[in-house]
């Protein structure tokens, strides 16, 4: 084992200048800008759903979309705040009100509309396109988030990945309801909830491994 004074000497010898991180809210804003860019590109490519203007008049749809968007924004901010060592963990609660609103709205719609439509509303062709949107939105956002938060790996990997994936999931869900006419709201609900669950659970399983890929230096010395 290397002696502590020797370790200090070698670390001090390696003290290259580092660029300080920008304030977390600003970094969250950068990430959200990227998210906006991805959504815009997708909108140009795929076009907004045809009945978008009409749906905007329905309060349930508007509330649901606003809530999911708000969840995404707040979760992104929370992820960047919690990733820093000297910020309180209570920031994890930041997206909770929006999340509760979003989920309760989904639950309510599910209850009301399932009765209207029944299980027949599920169509597979639309499902595949939905899936494409899902991957196209979430993949760049996840990777960007991962790289931007790589220094959090030795600190609070689980909390940070959960928040980050919640942000990605919420943004993705917003994208899905923007672009896809899913007549069966059941589909929307499934996609909304399913996306969130898939991302959060994937993050739970692979979060640490992914962080290890991106930030291997931190762990090499000890493990």
């Amino acid at each position: 084992m290397i002696k502590t004074p020797d370790l200090i000497a070698s670390l001090a010898a390696n003290a290259t200048p580092v660029r300080r991180l920008r304030p977390p809210v600003m970094r969250a804003a950068c990430w959200l800008l990227l998210a906006a860019a991805v959504l815009t590109l997708l909108a140009i490519n795929q076009g907004v759903r045809p009945d978008f203007a009409q749906r905007l008049r329905e309060p349930a749809f508007v509330i649901c979309m606003a809530a999911s968007l708000l969840t995404g924004v707040l979760a992104a901010i929370a992820a960047f705040l919690v990733s820093l060592p000297d910020r309180s963990r209570l920031w994890l609660l930041l997206p909770m009100p929006a999340l509760v609103l979003w989920l309760s709205n989904i639950g309510y719609q599910c209850l009301v509309q399932w009765i209207d439509i029944g299980p027949n509303g599920v169509s597979l062709g639309e499902a595949a396109r939905c899936f494409a949107t899902l991957v196209l939105t979430s993949l760049p956002l996840s990777l960007a988030m991962l790289v931007m938060l790589r220094y959090a790996a030795p600190l609070r990997p689980t909390a940070v990945t959960l928040m980050g994936s919640l942000a990605v999931a919420a943004i993705t869900a917003t994208a899905l309801s923007l672009f896809h006419t899913v007549d069966a709201t059941v589909m929307v609900l499934m996609w909304n909830l399913g996306t969130a669950v898939v991302f959060v659970s994937l993050a739970g399983v692979f979060g640490r491994t992914m962080f290890r890929w991106v930030a291997p230096r931190t762990f090499d010395a000890r493990d």
Partner: peptide, 21 residues
Amino acid sequence: VEDAVQDILLTIHSIRQTYDP
């Protein structure tokens, strides 16, 4: 104890850019 201290020193070194003066 000594291992833990060294672990912390290495961690500080690798994420020293996260400190806001």
